[in-house]
Design a protein around this nucleic acid. Structure first.
Length: 106
DNA sequence: GCCAGGGCGCTAA
DNA sequence: ATTAGCGCCCTGG
């Protein structure tokens, strides 16, 4: 497992229920600016049933970056915690994006 | 080791 | 709003 994965998982665990974060945002929060893609890898590597809420991480456009199968699963999980999707399958980041104080003060 | 392709994102046009 | 180009770096062949 890659050394940075632990930090990434820690950051993702900080995203509260009913809110979402972006890949780039998570990267920034764990001190890996510009490495959004690595966040995607870390989440992809998660075992089933881990405590990490991977479903709360979306791309910067507010939509789901996965294929149909996993995408449906992710969308269902988010909808179950109150996150709304528009008809184009997108989340309004202005309303649902998580904004930790540590980040607002950057 | 090289190469191509990813759960990405920023900037410029 | 969309597209193209580039940077990032991990994985699989």
């Amino acid at each position: 497992m890659h050394p940075h994965y632990a930090a990434i998982y820690r950051a993702v665990r900080g995203v509260p229920r009913g809110r979402v974060a972006t890949y780039g945002q998570i990267a920034l929060l764990c001190g890996l600016p510009g490495r959004a893609r690595q966040v995607g890898y870390a989440l992809h590597a998660l075992p089933a049933g881990s405590p990490v809420p991977w479903q709360r991480v979306l791309n910067v456009r507010g939509d789901i970056s996965l294929g149909h199968e996993s995408g449906q699963r992710q969308r269902r999980l988010l909808a179950a915690e109150g996150v709304e999707f528009d008809e184009r399958g997108r989340v309004d980041l202005g309303r649902f994006q998580w904004k930790p104080r540590r980040m607002r003060s950057l």
